[in-house]
């Protein structure tokens, strides 16, 4: 079992994702598709810049599609160059309160809290 299984099971488990049709024809993304991707990534993209992004992204995707020429069914994916297990840390408190320093670089704080526009739940 490895990342391979990760992906297969992911596909089986995923029943909440995009409908397949959302990004049809990957080679050539439409302005609407770019808008959707930008939304997912929370990036404001000016309407006027959409065609250029669409063209750039389509070029990049066509370029990376070259990978599909390679038959890789039996290849085990490699997620990380270091093929070793992760090192663990002992359970000990090593950090002190540094709120003042951390919040000195924050855009908006009050009473020790980071502020954002009201979140509606």
């Amino acid at each position: 079992m490895d990342v391979f299984t990760f992906a297969i099971e992911r596909r089986l488990a995923d029943n909440s994702g995009f409908p397949e049709s959302r990004f049809e024809e990957a080679m050539s993304l439409s302005n609407e598709q770019v808008t959707e991707i930008a939304h997912l990534a929370r990036l404001q993209v000016d309407q006027a810049d959409l065609p250029e992004y669409a063209r750039n992204l389509s070029d990049i995707l066509s370029f990376v599609d070259a990978m599909n020429a390679m038959e890789t069914d039996s290849v085990e994916p490699l997620a990380h160059p270091l093929e070793m297990p992760q090192r663990l840390r002992e359970d000990a408190v090593t950090e002190e309160n540094q709120r003042e320093q951390f919040q000195a670089v924050a855009p908006q704080v009050e009473a020790g809290l980071y502020l954002v526009p009201r979140v509606i739940e």
């Binding site: 009050e110 009473a111 020790g112 809290l113 980071y114 502020l115 954002v116 526009p117 009201r118 979140v119």
Partner: peptide, 13 residues
């Protein structure tokens, strides 16, 4: 997220 006590904003702890 803390909504109480702020006007129009949410506080994050």
């Amino acid at each position: 997220s803390l909504h109480e006590g702020f006007e129009g904003v949410t506080g994050i702890d």
